[in-house]
Amino acid sequence: MLRAGPMSAGALADAFDVSKPTMSAHFAVLVAADLIGAEKSGRTIMYRLKMSVLEEALMGFAQAFGLQVTPETPTTPAPGQTKGKS
């Protein structure tokens, strides 16, 4: 999704059927891995893709050879982590 351009945390969270705190935890992992960049813009946090060419190529290879790097469908939320409860 971030390949199309920067997106706000809210817009990203809306695209998945998981709670915002769960999404926030996922974002934190990706930021720690230096794969996305977070930037505060007013009251929203904007996320941007931060992948080197090699990382992008590796992800492309993984997808081409059937390794499920990015799931086709959003993951089912864990009990107690539904969107309505956030």
Binding site: A4, G5, P6, D34, G37, E39, S41, M46, R48, L49, K50, M51, S52, V53, L54, E56
Partner: peptide, 21 residues
């Protein structure tokens, strides 16, 4: 290899961030 990983702060961008990316 490092060029796409180098991000310019959004406030300093003078063009569309998606296009810049």
């Amino acid at each position: 290899n490092a060029i796409p990983k180098t991000l310019v702060p959004l406030a300093r961008l003078s063009c569309d961030p998606a296009r810049e990316q």
